[in-house]
Every structure is written in structure tokens, then in C-alpha cells.
Design a protein around this nucleic acid. Structure first.
Lengths: 201, 201
DNA sequence: CATTTTTGAATGAATATTTGTTCATTGATA
DNA sequence: TATCAATGAACAAATATTCATTCAAAAATG
């Protein structure tokens, strides 16, 4: 009799995760058309054929990644923060600290941010504005915090959606830095907060 | 008799400029490997073969563009501003206004910024740190202004190079916005300045 | 417990497809 | 009608995908 089906299943899941995990960073760095299957396979350390055992095509692998980077946990956490009984200034501080920590600790967070932002930028082309993407939801909660801050007088004036866009844009910048530069020096949390806050003397 | 050589020369220069001008935005948006010659030609409104009358290869066209986007005028202007007898705060204000106006008025400025920043990000891979690129020079003058501002007390504390990087990073963000979104709403100059300034109450 | 047998994942050379480049022909102009 | 830029079908090179084969694990057998 052959290998136990159970063990086989385990191995499949393990390999599938390995491929996805390694591909996320590779795609984020090189883009879809900049990623050759031969290179990607070499980078993961598997044969080209193996990729096709787990995914129908390059396109499908990419789509699979897009499903995975829609991290509900992140959105949930921001939602909770949004409705906490805190000043907007405190919320922005907490959020900024958290985001920067994640950028530092979580190996693939930078790739997740980069891919999501790129998707948002290119969404304009495809006109698939269903408003339910990762970024779009992050924007919605951010707008709430910004509006609160504007009422409280701690956040600068201006279109809240534009300011939210600016804030997440700066996060995207540092995700790019982390992805591309070898010696990555973490941004200061203050710099990130300053995208929104009126700084008192 | 054929066309006059003079008229021919004129037409050649015209077509060459047209190709370069249209290609800059196309490459900035789609990247090198994301740009197909067939698509690019269609976008410009010429035949595929025509591209090869004017440029040896896709690679060469791309290199040609890289020469062109190293705009000495921009650097010269920043250099002049840097050594003007003004407060750093005023310099930052003038610069921010100027950059945003250029982003709005100059059709290909956004593409120039995007391509230069992408080159800077990827330079890490290739280790060609010759320190004479467009961005690198912009950084150098920016650092001077930031140092002045820190002495004067108007600019936040922190590594000046990192702050310069941050400032140009935000400009890059808005270049991306302009390139990708159809209905582009210009960033407020204040938002850009706030990357550096301590805002007094 | 050594050997055989069976299974399915892994592989990469072979093939299909896509994309870059060439070149013989066309068309516009003076 | 002589010239030369423009063109796109034909060709070459690069890249994605397939599939016949290899390999490693483990159950069955003596």
C-alpha cells in the first residue's frame, strides 16, 4: 500500500503554502509580467512543473494570491480601533505604531500592502469598483477616524478620503522600501502620524 | 525628385519625439516587461515596424528614455533655490508649490518622477550606486535645505537623508495617482510640506 | 526486518504560446 | 517617377505549459 492519504494531504498543504508564501513577495517585487515561472520556481526551490501541480496557471496563482492578501483580520482590527472610546489622536498613534511594527515583524506584510495598493491604483483601468476590497475598507474606517479628529481639532482640514489615501500611501512607500532595499531602516512613527495631525508647538 | 532632405529630417525628428513622449508615460505605467511592443505601437498610433526605424530595440528605446528623464533643468532649479537667501520654511514652500504645479501642468512630469523613483528603488539590486542619478542629486540639495530648517527650528528632527527620501516619496505617490487615476485631484501643497515641517499651533 | 510493490508528488525536457524583431512591399511626396 | 518613411506579415527569441519519467515513502509479504 502507498503513503497514507493523511500524510499526503499534509504534504500538499505544506507545499501549497510554501509556494504561495514565496510567490507573494516575488510578485510584489517584480509584478505579474516581470515574474517568469522559471525564475519563480528557482527562487522557491522547486521544479517548474511542480507549480502546475498546485496551480492551473501563472494567472491562477496570481489570483489565488489576491484572495489571500485580503486580510480580514487587519480590517477587523482597524474596525475595532475605530469604535474604541479614544481620541482620534490616540487612535492614529496606536494605528501607526501597529502598522510599523507589522511592517517590521511580519515577513510578508510589506508584500501584502504593496500588492493591495497596486491593485487599487490599477482598478481604475478595469472599472471593477465594487468597493469591497481590502484597501477600500481600510479607507472607510480611516475616514471615520479622520472625521473624528477634525471635529476634535487634532487633524488637519481637508477632504477626509483624500487624507486617508495619503496616509495609506505613505504606508505603501515604506512597504516598497522594505521590499526593495536590503538595509531597511524603519520609518519613524511620528513621520507617519504627521501625514494627518496638526502638530502643536 | 524626392522629398527635400530638410523636410525629411523635420519629419524624422517629429516622429522620434512623438514616440519618446508617448513611450515615457506607457513605460512609467506598465513597466519594462509589462510593455508589449505591439500594444505600445497601437497606443502611439503607429505600426510596430516604425518603432524599429527609430530605435534599435525595446531595450534601446528604454535606455533612451532614461537619458531623457535625467532632467538637468530640475536639478539646476533646486540648486538655485537651495542657495537663495531664504528661510528653509520658505524654500520648502516654494519647492512644494513648484513641484505640484509641474505635476499638474507638465504632461510627462509624473512619468519622469515615477520612472526615476522606480530606478532608485531597483538600483539596490544592481549595485550601480554611482550617486549621480537625477534622484540622488535631488536628495543632496534637499538634505541641505532640511539641515538648514533643523537649525532654524522649523523642520522636524531626524536623519535629513531619510526625511528627504520621505519628501520625494510623497511626490512619487502623487505622480502614481496622476498616472493611474483618470479623475486626478491635486494634493494640497500643505500636505506635502507637512512631511517636513513642525507645524506651529 | 529485509524485500517487494504500490502510489502520487516532483521533475525538467519537450511543446505551445506569446512577444520582440526583420524585411519586402506600399504609399506619400516633391 | 525617384526616394524614403511607414507598415504588418513572417520570423526568431523568450516564456508559459504539458507530460512521460523519476523518486521517495510506506504498506504488504515472506
Amino acid at each position: 500500500m502507498p503513503k497514507s492519504p493523511k500524510r499526503c494531504e499534509e504534504l500538499r498543504i505544506e507545499m501549497r503554502n510554501k509556494i504561495i508564501h514565496e510567490s507573494i513577495r516575488y510578485f510584489a517585487k517584480n509584478g505579474f509580467s516581470g515574474t517568469k515561472i522559471s525564475d519563480l520556481a528557482k527562487h522557491i526551490g522547486i521544479g517548474q512543473g511542480t507549480l502546475y501541480v498546485y496551480f492551473e496557471s501563472k494567472e491562477m496563482l496570481f489570483q489565488e494570491i489576491y484572495k489571500i492578501i485580503n486580510r480580514e483580520e487587519d480590517i477587523e482590527q482597524l474596525k475595532i480601533l475605530t469604535f474604541l472610546p479614544l481620541s482620534a489622536k490616540d487612535k492614529i498613534h496606536k494605528l501607526s505604531k501597529r502598522v510599523l511594527r507589522q511592517l517590521e515583524e511580519d515577513e510578508s506584510f510589506a508584500a501584502v500592502v504593496a500588492l493591495n495598493t497596486q491593485a487599487l491604483l490599477e482598478q481604475d483601468k478595469e472599472c471593477s469598483a465594487d468597493g469591497t476590497t481590502y484597501q477600500t475598507k481600510l479607507y472607510q474606517y480611516m475616514v471615520k477616524i479622520i472625521e473624528q479628529g477634525q471635529m476634535e481639532g487634532s487633524v488637519v482640514n481637508g477632504n477626509p478620503l483624500k487624507l486617508a489615501d495619503y496616509y495609506w500611501g505613505v504606508v505603501y512607500l515604506y512597504a516598497l522600501k522594505k521590499l526593495f532595499t536590503t538595509k531597511y531602516e524603519l520609518i519613524n512613527s511620528d513621520d507617519l502620524e504627521r501625514t494627518l495631525l496638526k502638530l502643536a508647538k
